[in-house]
Design a protein around this nucleic acid. Structure first.
Lengths: 239, 239
DNA sequence: CTTTCGTGGATACGTTCGTATCACGAGGGA
DNA sequence: TCCCTCGTGATACGAACGTATCCACGAAAG
């Protein structure tokens, strides 16, 4: 029942190959038609399963390349080389490059969420809300290699997400629980009634993120950023 | 004195062409060698001349593509089509794609600077420092099509600049006069002595920029952002 | 009238991209 | 033993990329 010896598009006869793999189409034009008829981007699934093993290893290779050389250089071949596998293995575990990039962003988001939650839980019992608040905001700054990598990857993805609905959906998925958490912490830390926790939280989260981007460029120093952060913590939560 | 009928690399004989342009190399291998021996990226000039006429038109095409479809889609062919010229014309006016992208960013920076300076000069005589300060900060927000386009282009370039020294240099070139200007305005507007103008300026500029990025994603509404801005202006400059 | 020179259209070059296809080996029932 | 699936290496495909080269045309210069 195999359709050998006939072009898959026009059903015409095939020329027998002199060497190598036998041809599937009678001409480049027929092969091009078959190629074009396959380009329909399906919508990506809103959720993503937990990754482990080789898929996880490939996704982490995407992070490293995006952070060090930019998302632009994250080609399938480069990702495979960085992960120590062949391109075929990447192709086997992910239905396509776009889905791989979306999955990599989702996984990074979930990883950061989990790490922040763990740190929060570890500090929650032993510390006062002021320390907790500072820890939450510090998590946004690229103060070590892990956070610097994460922020660089996020910056690369943000630009891409402005023109890609699937990536934008990942950014918008979380809503804005971070600003709500900061506002709650400001209230819990005993801010004076003159302080508006929501407005302070909005500016703090946005401002610290922006200062973090300056830090990536070395346009500011780490001490500068931390000084600004402490100044405003002292302003919002006077001792 | 022309070296016709001989390969430009190995000086071997050329096969006469049956039709079309006569060949320059005796084989693809020789052509590949000539190609590889030409790939040395020279350092871009730190300054850029003023653009007008067709170069300006091409640079504006880069902006539109970067804003609407992403820097990733800003290929030479797309840029030429958007500018209404042939790719050859782009090639004629710019020494290469990378230099074109750098020039486009430099020109956008200078345009934004000039516009902000004009608006500042127009308001300087008739308004109090508070209105001036609000105008300066509002200029950072994507509140109309021009500013939205500009911010989207800047976001795309920022991500690219993290892995491209020539683009990073453009971002770092200005230093931080904007924060200084805001701090000066805060002082001039008569802030109470309890206010630290520099620290407020740092958080304000970073925060408003961050809120602007949220606005691009429609993660916040324009009213939200303006409410936060006015809240902090009222806090820093009580009536 | 001839000769340059700036400009740009048409097209080809080598490269690299994402993806598809084929071949094959290991493992596990029937 | 046969057959099937899973995983993977090798390689090919069409497309698009940045760039280079060949020519043609018009205006200015001689």
């Amino acid at each position: 029942m195999r359709d050998e010896m006939k072009c898959r598009v026009c059903r015409g006869p095939l020329r027998p190959p002199e060497r190598g793999r036998p041809p599937l189409y009678c001409s480049r034009a027929c092969q091009a038609r078959a190629y074009r008829s396959r380009k329909n981007p399906p919508l990506p699934a809103p959720t993503a399963p937990e990754l482990a093993g080789r898929p996880r290893q490939i996704v982490e290779a995407v992070w490293r390349i995006a952070a060090e050389r930019g998302l632009r250089m994250a080609t399938v071949r480069e990702i495979a080389a960085e992960a120590g596998v062949t391109p075929r293995v990447v192709q086997y575990h992910f239905p396509g490059k776009h889905q791989l990039l979306v999955t990599a962003l989702q996984t990074l988001h979930r990883d950061n969420d989990r790490r922040a939650r763990d740190r929060f839980a570890a500090l929650r019992d032993a510390s006062d809300p002021r320390v907790l608040l500072r820890a939450v905001l510090e998590e946004l700054l690229p103060l070590d290699d892990r956070r610097r990598t994460s922020l660089r990857v996020m910056a690369a993805y943000y630009a891409w997400s402005l023109t890609d609905p699937a990536l934008a959906a990942v950014f918008l998925h979380a809503g804005q629980p971070l600003e709500d958490l900061v506002a709650t912490l400001i209230t819990a830390a005993g801010a004076p009634p003159a302080i508006d926790p929501a407005a302070e939280a909005d500016l703090l989260v946005g401002g610290i993120s922006g200062l973090g981007l300056d830090l990536l460029h070395r346009r500011r120093t780490r001490a500068d950023v931390l000084r600004v952060l402490d100044h405003h913590l002292n302003r919002i939560l006077p001792r």
